[in-house]
Design a protein around this nucleic acid. Sequence first.
DNA 1: TAAAGTGTACTATTGATATAATACAGTTAG
DNA 2: CTAACTGTATTATATCAATAGTACACTTTA
Lengths: 126, 126
Amino acid sequence: MVSFEDMKLEEGSPIYLQIIHHLKMGIAAGTVQDGEELPSRRTLSALLGVNPNTIQKAFHILEEEGLIVSHVGAKSCVSVTREQVQCLEQQLPDAHARQFIKQMQAMGLSCTQVVGLVERLWEEEV
Amino acid sequence: MVSFEDMKLEEGSPIYLQIIHHLKMGIAAGTVQDGEELPSRRTLSALLGVNPNTIQKAFHILEEEGLIVSHVGAKSCVSVTREQVQCLEQQLPDAHARQFIKQMQAMGLSCTQVVGLVERLWEEEV
DNA sequence: TAAAGTGTACTATTGATATAATACAGTTAG
DNA sequence: CTAACTGTATTATATCAATAGTACACTTTA
């Protein structure tokens, strides 16, 4: 069963996108595997304290993207090919890093400064 | 005159927040200094291709935060104390780095891997 | 078999974002 | 001085995100 226990909702980004992102990061990290069951829409909405329709929107998009499969009456499951997993493993960190670097450069920091900052803050974040 | 020429609008975040963020990063980078004139609301709206009200919303918030001052009939100006500049110089990169680290950790990457990724991608980004 | 749980669909409403079209008072520049 | 430009305010509209409530068909399970 895919876990959403550790997921914390944050402001600044739509909830349904955060849910999609959470699952993709789990797949990229290897903690979510092909065939794994997902919590039901109603269960997850209660866990996160959001509307069932918001969960449905996220799951609907995930199904359109071919990352999960759903059947009426039964729970949804993760369904990813090896290619999809590899794609997420490579592209997700890459895209985040590029955006991060762009911001650091806009604030005038050097590569050395950024590396130092990351190393200094790394241990603080659990 | 504060420049917004290099600012590219991106999806995923409200335009008025991007404008606020752009000015703060300029202050943190030292490319925007105290007393500097800002483009007028109408000029900037034409430059970015957005509605004047959107610029007004951004500038209104910036004035509430005490980073710019406005007077009817005259152009608005940046107005920051040494303390405000130091605050932005330290807190902005820090906050971005923490968020970045959290995402990298969620995808199962090690500190060494992330540092390597940043160093590898740094030169690609202009 | 019957009840509970599941995915799915629909309507309605609220708030935030963004656009559009004005309008007015004060400043600047010709 | 006058015209152009400035900040500011107002009303209206459209879209998206999120909530709320309801309904129905299907699967699981007790």
